[in-house]
Amino acid sequence: MTTISFTKGHGTGNDFVIVPDVDGTFPLTERQVAALCDRRFGIGGDGVLRVVRTSHVADADAEADAEWFMDYRNADGSVAEMCGNGIRVFAKYLVETGLATISADQPLRVATRAGTKTLTRTEGGFEVDLGVWRPEADEVLVRARGIDVARPGQGIDVGNPHVVVALSSSDELDDLDLSVHPLLQPEPSAGANVEFVVPDEPLVQDGVGGITMRVFERGVGETLSCGTGVAAAALAVRLWAGPAAPTQWRVAVPGGTLGVRVEQHADGEHVFLSGPATLVFSGEVTLA
Rank of each mutant, 00 (worst) to 15 (best):
S168D: 15
S168R: 11
V165F: 05
S189F: 03
V180T: 14
D171Q: 11
N160A: 09
D175I: 02
L183G: 07
A190C: 11
D174M: 05
G191N: 05
H181G: 08
P188N: 02
H181D: 15
D175W: 10
L176W: 08
V163Y: 05
D171C: 02
L178R: 10
V180P: 00
V180I: 14
A192N: 06
L176A: 07
P186R: 02
D171N: 11
P182W: 06
D175V: 00
V180F: 12
N160R: 10
P188A: 03
D174E: 14
L173S: 03
G191M: 02
L173R: 05
A190R: 15
A166Q: 12
H181T: 15
G159H: 12
P188T: 01
S179V: 10
V180R: 13
H181L: 13
L176P: 01
S169P: 02
L173K: 02
H181V: 15
L173C: 07
S189H: 11
Q185H: 15
D175Q: 14
H162N: 04
L178H: 12
L176Q: 09
D175R: 15
D174H: 10
D174Y: 01
L184S: 14
L184T: 12
V165T: 09
E172Q: 13
A192F: 03
L176S: 07
Q185P: 03
L173M: 06
A166D: 11
S169Y: 01
L176I: 06
D177Y: 07
A190Y: 09
S170H: 13
G191E: 07
E172G: 02
A190W: 11
L176E: 06
V180K: 11
L176G: 03
V164M: 04
G191C: 05
V163K: 06
P161T: 10
P186H: 06
E172W: 00
E172Y: 01
S169N: 03
